[in-house]
Nucleic acid binder design. Structure first.
Length: 213
DNA sequence: CCTATGATGATCT
DNA sequence: GATCATCATAGGT
């Protein structure tokens, strides 16, 4: 177990704030994934904010659809989507209900249960790569669309929950452009990470791809 | 270290 | 039909 870790769960009030307040405040928090074989716990090191219908980079920018409906619901719930034909990404809904904002969980440092991720993450060459990137994080934690809409505020039987953990000093929180986001949303410096942490994913600019004909 | 590219399918226009 | 909040791999420096 981790010395000095604050295992108090985050409450719904934590998430019921503007996304640009919640996102940096999630760094250093402990995400707990309950699996049949035991818990996987990871310290969040990198996140991105998506500000709902005012944000061109957000899935909610053009209003509510079947896919993004969870974003319009109450804060503290998981929004999971499938992308690039292969991957899942995990977000936590925040802000007041209806604002449709959320935080993409981009990377973390696995503290407990690394061995439970090995089969799914067999391409990882070391522990720091197990959850370095949003799809790797979701894969490591065995998160898929079955968890879309689940409440991540700690409760009996919760599949996902977040503990206070060990937030970094404020001067170790850095921010910059979001990764892989194109269009007008690309310029917002709404990616937040812990300076120097080896589990933070490399920045990649958005590249429009042309499919083979 | 770096850059380039194929994989793969749901979603939206 | 185009796009996509990505990753693994191959090959060059």
């Amino acid at each position: 177990m981790i010395e000095g870790l604050d295992r108090t769960p985050l409450t719904r009030d934590f998430f019921d704030r503007p996304v640009l307040d919640v996102a940096p405040d999630l760094l250093g928090r402990t995400l707990v994934r309950a699996t049949p074989d035991g818990p996987i716990e990871l310290r969040l090191t990198e996140v991105e904010a998506y500000a709902g219908e005012i944000d061109p980079g957000s899935h909610a920018f053009r209003g509510r659809t079947a896919r993004n409906s969870v974003m319009f619901g109450p804060p503290g719930h998981a929004y999971v989507y499938f992308t690039y034909g292969m991957w899942h990404c995990l977000n936590l809904v925040c802000g007041p209900e209806g604002r449709a904002s959320g935080v993409l969980l981009r990377a973390g440092d696995i503290q407990v249960g690394a061995e439970l991720t090995r089969e799914r993450r067999n391409s990882a060459r070391n522990d720091k790569e197990l959850a370095k990137g949003p799809a790797r994080l979701a894969t490591a934690l065995d998160v898929d669309r079955a968890l879309n809409g689940t409440d991540a505020i700690a409760h009996p039987g919760a599949s996902l929950s977040v503990l206070h953990g060990t937030p970094p000093p404020r001067d170790q929180v850095r921010n910059g452009p979001r990764t892989g986001v194109g269009g007008d949303g690309a310029t917002h410096p709404w990616r937040f990470w812990i300076d120097g942490d080896p589990t933070v994913s490399p920045y990649r600019a958005h590249v429009p791809r042309r499919r083979a004909t």
